[in-house]
């Protein structure tokens, strides 16, 4: 009984490892291949986070012992909490320093709104 359960857990763990590393690989490929900074941040947040979580699940299924597994849960929670914040900060800095060329975007409502706000401020100064 124990061994069948163990085999099932091992197989599921293997599937998690493989799909997790596939996603991490795709994330790396996206970061290399995408045209601009913002698009690269997509690769760095979504497939990267899920890939990490899948690898952690696989690890948890393989270890199967209390202590270490809880630490893995913690890693997953913090990865999900911090990845969007990091992407936000990099994206914001990139946008403000003009690293998102207008020609790679269909529309840029942030640049438009910022221009409008600056125009208003100019009007008030006059």
């Amino acid at each position: 009984m124990m061994t069948t359960l163990g085999t099932v857990a091992d197989v599921v763990a293997a599937v998690c490892f493989l799909s997790g590393s596939f996603l991490a690989f795709a994330a790396g490929l996206g970061a290399l291949r995408f045209p601009d900074l913002a698009a690269r941040m997509h690769a760095g947040t979504k497939p990267q986070t899920l890939g990490l979580i899948l690898v952690l699940i696989g690890l948890g299924l393989r270890l199967r012992s209390g202590g270490a597994v809880w630490a893995l849960v913690l890693v997953a929670i913090f990865a999900m909490l911090t990845a969007p914040v990091a992407a936000h900060l990099v994206g914001r800095a990139g946008h403000r320093t003009g690293r998102m060329p207008a020609e790679s975007l269909v529309v840029d409502e942030l640049a438009h709104d910022t221009r409008m706000a600056n125009d208003d401020a100019d009007d008030e100064q006059r």
Binding site: A27, P47, T49
Partner: peptide, 20 residues
């Protein structure tokens, strides 16, 4: 979301059209 981004990353020669 993860698989969509992964698929776009794996479609060589395809440039996604972004927007803000």
């Amino acid at each position: 979301g993860s698989f969509e981004v992964a698929m776009i990353a794996l479609r060589f020669g395809y440039q996604p059209q972004g927007a803000v």
